[in-house]
Nucleic acid binder design. Structure first.
Lengths: 336, 336
DNA sequence: AAGCAAATTGACAGCGCTGTCATCCCTGTC
DNA sequence: GACAGGGATGACAGCGCTGTCAATTTGCTT
């Protein structure tokens, strides 16, 4: 039969309540008692029953990770974040559940409510692009569910963020350093924070280098391979073609490379291409893609850690900044 | 305050136990009563408390999806399976948790035990390659935890499977139909079922077409991009090169295409290449990859459904076969 | 109309833990 | 040496549901 808290109490010669206190790291237990109880738990390989704990204690030890499966960013990205979140949850013996939610759909809030009512998560981790979906945040606050965000646009919350604008600026400066002056940018989905930051970084780099921005070189994309192809065709049809393209993510950059093939442009000889995200794809292309690496797994872990700090009453949590890595590979070269 | 089962009982004018029976679809409730209780539940938007249910009923309504994060197959593949599993679990109001487990590590079983002791899943879904890891299956049986598998090698269990051998045969027959006779095969990791089936399908197709197998054309890979490159270099160094390469998955096929670039071989003009899995990458390559599509999401869903059938006492569950799709794209062409 | 089995319903305890509040025991103080 | 104050500990009820078993009702037979 399973070992119960009561059994540990008997073995340690204390009351069940004291064992409970030790289990939950509560105050007002003498060091000697605490040690004795810990030893008994260890010896008996005691595992608290999560359902009993949550029923009596009115908390679930559950963290839900929410993601949008409508216009899904690369699934690899989410998988890495998920791994990181899981790692943090495991460390504190919380369990994690994942929830796809369609941001566009009008029963979004109803589904969110159902999630909360059905599973009672103690907190949630939000992933892009739903990190900044106002109705969601509002509802979470109304229902008193704490949350932490991965790459939120707005400040003020807790979670984790990379300085995407600085990263975008760095990659464009890399192109400028190779002598490029006609540098195009393929923008991502309009309301994604990522699109805004990356565009801002692009502009900042050009401005700092004293290169005037040509509006024809900034074209709209949608973070997909196909939109990259379309955008690139538009660019290649210009009288004065760009010599380099900075796409707001790797998938679109891949599309640009495809379109370059169609137009007989050799990458990087005739055209430099770079992306953002460092998906596995980026390494496998030929030539491999110059891009920005986000430490997604770390970011997931850190966001979850911040959330857990709040849930465990260990301070208010913060918005942590993590560094980016500029991955220079074969897809960028000196201007022809 | 939250609506409890007792409140529903009062509203419907029955005992709590009767509401419980309706909630759990148990027998021995008259239709009239059942209807009345259902109406009351609906009207009050009753949500059973999962912890109370599992504490009292000694089951968790939890399905764990296990995957190997050591030699991880494409994360996209797992993400799709995960989505499918989640869909099935949702339909029956089960919750799902995901668990990475390192198959090679020697504390594998300890971690499995910890998962079971800590979270008490009612059942687990196994994904390749851990679907056939004997110590795992043994331990699950010992602890009485039902499981369903995605693409298991052995028969006898429940879950879902695609006829990979037939699929491999079909893709090789496609190459034969294009006039190819020197068809190479890059094999996957030795102990994966996928490798065996795909190799068997390759041989079957050749034999059926009366083409003698050249052992030099069958080279070992490891399901990774890099191993595809290495294998292809080996093939291209042969006095008599193959005119087509069938790689056991898309990542390796991509590696083959990369290596072809190195050797100045044009795909598909000088060399036809095909893969297996239809990863997003396959569509984004240039030329796009001829490959086999597995309905991964459906497979996840079906495996979970079979497991849930068992958990809900709805029969023994079975091993379902799903159809494959041969995706013909630009990477294969008539023999030069 | 009586008698019986089967179907339906309910009373009650208890799953394993934690919140609340009472009790006990130690300090240090004057 | 008496007493306040605070830290350490425990008794007890109850979280929201289900298992067990007993009580009641129903439908059928003769």
């Amino acid at each position: 039969m399973r070992v119960r808290l009561e059994d540990v109490a008997r073995a340690a010669g204390v009351s069940p309540k004291t064992v409970s206190r030790v289990l939950n790291d509560e105050a007002n237990v003498s060091d000697a008692t605490r040690k004795r109880v810990r030893a008994a738990m260890e010896a008996m390989d005691y595992r608290p029953h999560p359902s009993a704990r949550s029923l009596a204690g009115n908390r679930s030890f559950l963290v839900a990770m929410l993601y949008d499966n409508n216009d899904n960013p690369a699934s690899t990205y989410l998988a890495e974040i998920q791994d990181g979140v899981l790692e943090a949850c495991d460390a504190y013996r919380y369990s994690m559940m994942v929830r796809p939610l369609r941001m566009r759909s009008d029963d979004f809030i109803r589904r969110l409510d159902a999630l909360i009512s059905d599973h009672h998560p103690d907190g949630v981790v939000l992933t892009p692009p739903i990190t900044d979906y106002a109705p969601l945040l509002k509802r979470l606050r109304e229902r008193g569910v704490p949350y932490a965000s991965v790459s939120p646009q707005s400040d003020g919350g807790i979670g984790v963020r990379m300085d995407e604008q600085a990263a975008a600026r760095a990659i464009v400066e890399h192109l400028l350093g190779l002598g490029h002056r006609r540098i195009a940018h393929v923008v991502g989905i309009a309301d994604h924070g990522a699109s805004r930051w990356r565009l801002a970084g692009y502009r900042e780099a050009l401005a700092a280098a004293g290169v005037a921005e040509d509006p024809a070189l900034v074209v709209q994309g949608a973070f997909t391979f196909g939109s990259g192809v379309t955008a690139a065709r538009e660019l290649f049809a210009l009288k004065q073609r760009p010599t380099a393209v900075f796409a707001a993510n790797d998938d679109m950059a891949t599309g640009v490379m495809w379109a370059a093939g169609e137009y007989g442009l050799k990458v990087p000889h005739d055209l430099s291409v770079c992306g953002f995200d460092d998906t596995p794809l980026a390494r496998q292309l030929w030539p491999a893609l110059t891009t920005i690496r986000q430490p997604s797994r770390d970011m997931g872990r850190i966001a979850a850690q911040q959330l857990l700090a709040v849930l465990r009453g260990r301070g208010p949590g913060e918005l942590v900044q993590v560094p980016f890595v500029l991955q220079i590979r074969g897809s960028t070269a000196r201007v022809p």
